[in-house]
Amino acid sequence: MTHHKIPVRRVVIISANPLFREGLRTLYADRWKGKALIVATPTNMAEADAALEKHQPNLVIVDYDDKTINRAEFLEHFFDGKSTMQMMLVSLGDAGEVVIYDRRKLTPADAQNWLNDPWQEE
Protein backbone atom coordinates (compact mmCIF):
# COMPACT_ATOMS: atom_id res chain seq x y z
CA MET A 1 0.00 0.00 0.00
CA THR A 2 1.36 3.37 -0.94
CA HIS A 3 0.85 6.43 1.17
CA HIS A 4 0.65 9.71 -0.68
CA LYS A 5 2.02 12.50 1.40
CA ILE A 6 -0.46 15.34 1.20
CA PRO A 7 1.38 18.64 1.00
CA VAL A 8 0.60 21.12 3.71
CA ARG A 9 -1.36 23.97 2.18
CA ARG A 10 -0.37 27.55 2.84
CA VAL A 11 -2.95 30.06 4.00
CA VAL A 12 -2.60 33.84 4.13
CA ILE A 13 -5.13 35.93 6.07
CA ILE A 14 -5.14 39.58 5.01
CA SER A 15 -6.98 41.95 7.29
CA ALA A 16 -6.42 45.26 9.03
CA ASN A 17 -8.73 44.08 11.82
CA PRO A 18 -6.73 42.23 14.48
CA LEU A 19 -9.79 40.62 16.08
CA PHE A 20 -10.85 39.14 12.74
CA ARG A 21 -7.33 38.09 11.78
CA GLU A 22 -6.38 36.57 15.10
CA GLY A 23 -9.85 35.13 15.59
CA LEU A 24 -9.60 33.14 12.36
CA ARG A 25 -6.08 32.08 13.22
CA THR A 26 -7.16 30.80 16.63
CA LEU A 27 -10.23 29.12 15.18
CA TYR A 28 -8.55 27.31 12.30
CA ALA A 29 -4.92 26.76 13.30
CA ASP A 30 -5.84 23.65 15.32
CA ARG A 31 -8.59 22.51 12.99
CA TRP A 32 -6.20 22.57 10.02
CA LYS A 33 -3.29 20.95 11.84
CA GLY A 34 -1.30 18.80 9.44
CA LYS A 35 -3.41 19.96 6.46
CA ALA A 36 -2.74 23.66 6.28
CA LEU A 37 -0.59 26.29 7.86
CA ILE A 38 -1.35 29.97 8.29
CA VAL A 39 1.92 31.33 6.94
CA ALA A 40 1.27 35.07 7.07
CA THR A 41 -1.28 37.58 8.34
CA PRO A 42 -0.53 40.84 6.49
CA THR A 43 -2.36 43.98 7.54
CA ASN A 44 -1.93 46.17 4.44
CA MET A 45 -1.40 45.97 0.69
CA ALA A 46 2.39 46.17 0.77
CA GLU A 47 2.67 43.35 3.30
CA ALA A 48 0.04 41.38 1.41
CA ASP A 49 1.91 41.69 -1.90
CA ALA A 50 5.11 40.52 -0.23
CA ALA A 51 3.36 37.58 1.44
CA LEU A 52 1.68 36.45 -1.79
CA GLU A 53 4.99 36.63 -3.63
CA LYS A 54 6.93 34.82 -0.92
CA HIS A 55 4.46 32.09 0.10
CA GLN A 56 2.46 31.47 -3.10
CA PRO A 57 -0.48 30.48 -0.85
CA ASN A 58 -3.16 27.92 -1.68
CA LEU A 59 -5.79 29.94 0.12
CA VAL A 60 -6.01 33.69 0.70
CA ILE A 61 -8.65 35.17 2.97
CA VAL A 62 -9.09 38.89 2.33
CA ASP A 63 -11.04 41.26 4.57
CA TYR A 64 -11.28 44.24 2.25
CA ASP A 65 -13.17 46.66 4.51
CA ASP A 66 -10.20 48.70 5.57
CA LYS A 67 -9.04 51.47 3.24
CA THR A 68 -5.51 50.04 3.38
CA ILE A 69 -6.66 46.92 1.56
CA ASN A 70 -7.88 47.23 -1.97
CA ARG A 71 -10.41 44.69 -3.23
CA ALA A 72 -9.91 45.51 -6.92
CA GLU A 73 -6.15 45.11 -6.63
CA PHE A 74 -6.63 41.68 -5.13
CA LEU A 75 -8.89 40.60 -7.90
CA GLU A 76 -6.27 41.72 -10.42
CA HIS A 77 -3.69 39.59 -8.60
CA PHE A 78 -6.04 36.68 -8.73
CA PHE A 79 -6.82 36.93 -12.43
CA ASP A 80 -3.18 37.50 -13.37
CA GLY A 81 -1.85 34.49 -11.45
CA LYS A 82 -1.52 30.99 -12.83
CA SER A 83 -1.00 28.67 -9.87
CA THR A 84 -3.79 26.90 -8.03
CA MET A 85 -5.24 29.26 -5.51
CA GLN A 86 -8.46 29.89 -3.69
CA MET A 87 -9.43 33.31 -2.53
CA MET A 88 -12.15 34.26 -0.07
CA LEU A 89 -13.33 37.87 -0.08
CA VAL A 90 -14.95 38.91 3.17
CA SER A 91 -16.38 42.22 4.29
CA LEU A 92 -16.88 42.76 8.01
CA GLY A 93 -19.40 45.42 7.10
CA ASP A 94 -21.52 42.96 5.14
CA ALA A 95 -22.54 39.81 6.95
CA GLY A 96 -24.68 38.67 4.04
CA GLU A 97 -22.15 37.46 1.53
CA VAL A 98 -18.67 35.99 1.23
CA VAL A 99 -17.25 35.42 -2.26
CA ILE A 100 -14.93 32.53 -2.99
CA TYR A 101 -12.83 32.36 -6.14
CA ASP A 102 -11.20 29.08 -7.14
CA ARG A 103 -8.31 29.27 -9.60
CA ARG A 104 -6.86 26.10 -11.14
CA LYS A 105 -4.35 25.44 -13.86
CA LEU A 106 -5.00 22.25 -15.87
CA THR A 107 -3.54 20.58 -18.91
CA PRO A 108 -6.03 20.26 -21.81
CA ALA A 109 -6.39 16.56 -20.97
CA ASP A 110 -7.06 17.30 -17.32
CA ALA A 111 -9.49 19.99 -18.38
CA GLN A 112 -11.33 17.45 -20.50
CA ASN A 113 -11.56 15.08 -17.53
CA TRP A 114 -12.68 17.92 -15.35
CA LEU A 115 -15.44 18.79 -17.81
CA ASN A 116 -16.85 15.27 -17.47
CA ASP A 117 -17.97 16.27 -13.99
CA PRO A 118 -17.17 19.91 -13.25
CA TRP A 119 -19.21 19.83 -10.05
CA GLN A 120 -17.55 16.88 -8.33
CA GLU A 121 -16.44 17.38 -4.77
CA GLU A 122 -12.68 17.72 -4.41
Binding site: L19, F20, E22, G23, L24, T26, L27, L92, A95
Partner: peptide, 18 residues
Protein backbone atom coordinates in the same frame (compact mmCIF):
# COMPACT_ATOMS: atom_id res chain seq x y z
CA UNK B 1 -23.98 38.97 19.52
CA UNK B 2 -22.91 39.46 15.91
CA UNK B 3 -24.50 38.48 12.62
CA UNK B 4 -21.15 37.97 10.87
CA UNK B 5 -20.57 34.25 11.40
CA UNK B 6 -16.85 34.28 10.53
CA UNK B 7 -16.12 37.21 12.80
CA UNK B 8 -18.28 35.88 15.63
CA UNK B 9 -16.80 32.37 15.60
CA UNK B 10 -13.27 33.75 15.40
CA UNK B 11 -13.92 36.18 18.22
CA UNK B 12 -15.39 33.47 20.44
CA UNK B 13 -12.40 31.28 19.76
CA UNK B 14 -10.09 34.17 20.68
CA UNK B 15 -12.05 35.01 23.85
CA UNK B 16 -11.94 31.39 24.97
CA UNK B 17 -8.15 31.54 24.86
CA UNK B 18 -8.08 34.59 27.14
Amino acid sequence: VDDHALFRRGLISLLEEM
